[in-house]
Simulated assay, not measured.
Amino acid sequence: MSPHFHIPYAVPTVLLAIALVSRAPTFLRAWRDPEVRATTLLLLWATAVLVVITPANIDRLNRLTGVPNIASPWAYSFLTASCATGLAMIIRWREAPSPRRQRTIRRLYGAYAGVVVALWATFALADAPVPRIYDLDTYYADTPWMREHILLYLLAHLASCVVSTRLLAKWFPQIAHPWLKAGVVFLQIGFSSGLVYDAAKLTAVTARWCGTDWDVLSTRAAPPFALAQAALLAVGFIVPQAGPALTAWVRDRAEYRRLRPLWRTVKVLAPASAKARIGFWSPLDLRLLQRRQRIHDALRLLACHLDHGLYARAGRAAAALHGEDAADGLAGAVTVLAAVAACREGTPAAPADRPPRTAVDLSDHLDAVSLALRHPRTVDGVRRRATSTESLNVHV
């Protein structure tokens, strides 16, 4: 048995297994959600198919069970189950919840469950004593009951690919959500790969019926398209669910990093309340929430130290030096640094009975203030300009 046959199966199998494991937490949290359940089952069936059809595992199953070609009904049953699950998911995506949709999905599952039962029945009735690892479909193409066994899975798979491709093609122009549209593109390519697989297999089987040997279509041409279909369908069904979560993660990560300079500047102040213990491995959204809360708590502590006059002068100086777009962020950075220093020294910058507006103003552009704090030399230049302007006004 050549090891080269194992290479194509390993990569998609590992990728599907990783996707399945990554879905486990979501499944445990929301297993009642039909889409979550269906996605997890689809990944499970697709992974099971690739595990079973790996040549080494076919040989292992034959030897462990003592039943030649027992991998055939197992693999084809998993493939049929994944076809049913995929079709059901497409129907759920396309149609709003209704009794009609539920009936359609129940009939679909019933039909494919019947195919699975028929696969095992035909295998039990067939006489297939010679183990075939690579060419079972063509080797037993003329064998009673094995012929029906092979045709059952091929026609069930072909029907699911044709119906899915047709449904997706009609639905695609109506899709507005970008992640769902991307998922449908992967699905269309995946089901098209499945059609090529079925065409190659059926052509090779038909050739055997006609007394011609075109086995290469079944043993060499078809398998890569089956592997491509498994991987593409997994991606296609995961992308619409994982895409929005990934977008939110990227957005939160960017904000978390943007707020870091401001957070580092104000974290020297004593927190207004006990700090919750949130470690590096805590969810990003929780860490971002804590960082935002820490900054807002600090701004409340700084309220009596925020000098609105300094803020206004720094804004004019920043606008003159760096333009209006940078003025708010640089003015806020100068004011926060001065307020932190005043707070640590215990010298209020504004009367207690007249709280400044600056804290409210800063909350509207925290990102800009934090971005300005990344450039301490620029902030210091604005501070010196604002201070020199104040000195000039006092002198006059």
Rank of each mutant, 00 (worst) to 15 (best):
L152K: 09
T122A: 10
Q188E: 00
R107K: 12
Y153A: 05
D127E: 11
P144I: 07
L167M: 15
H149I: 01
L187E: 02
G114E: 01
A121P: 11
T138R: 04
L180F: 11
R147A: 14
V185D: 07
G190T: 14
A156M: 09
M146P: 01
L152C: 08
S193V: 06
L187D: 03
L152D: 02
G194V: 02
A113F: 10
P131D: 05
D127C: 02
A128T: 15
L151C: 04
S192C: 07
S160C: 07
Y140S: 00
F172D: 00
T138K: 05
C161D: 06
A121V: 14
W120H: 13
P131C: 06
R106Q: 10
Y112I: 05
C161G: 00
A128V: 15
S160W: 13
W171H: 13
D137W: 07
V185R: 15
V130T: 15
D137I: 01
T104P: 00
Y109C: 01
R132Y: 10
V185H: 15
T165P: 09
V130I: 15
Q188H: 00
K170Q: 12
R106W: 05
L108Y: 09
A128H: 06
A128D: 10
T165K: 03
A141S: 09
V184A: 14
S164Y: 08
L180V: 09
R107I: 05
A121D: 13
A182T: 15
V162M: 04
V162H: 02
A156L: 08
Y153I: 07
I133W: 03
P178Y: 09
S160A: 15
F172L: 01
R147K: 15
F186Y: 15
Y134G: 07
H177R: 12
I175F: 13
G194S: 03
P178N: 02
Y139G: 01
R132I: 02
Y109H: 05
V115L: 08
I175A: 07
A113M: 08
K181R: 15
T165H: 11
A176Y: 06
A182M: 14
L158N: 01
D137A: 11
E148T: 10
A141D: 08
R106Y: 01
L136G: 00
S160L: 05
W120Q: 02
S193Q: 07
L125M: 13
P129L: 06
V162I: 11
A111L: 14
P178F: 10
I133Y: 08
R166A: 15
D127V: 11
R132M: 12
P131T: 04
P129S: 09
I133L: 09
H157D: 13
G190R: 11
K170E: 14
A121E: 12
F123T: 06
T165L: 15
K170M: 11
I105H: 04
R147M: 15
R103P: 00
F191N: 04
A121N: 10
S192F: 11
H157Y: 14
F123R: 09
G183V: 03
L136M: 09
P178S: 03
A141R: 03
L154P: 07
T104G: 07
A156K: 13
V162T: 05
A182K: 13
K181Q: 11
A121G: 13
Y153P: 02
D127K: 08
Y140F: 08
V185Q: 10
M146K: 06
S193T: 08
L125D: 02
Y134D: 08
R166P: 12
V116T: 04
W120C: 01
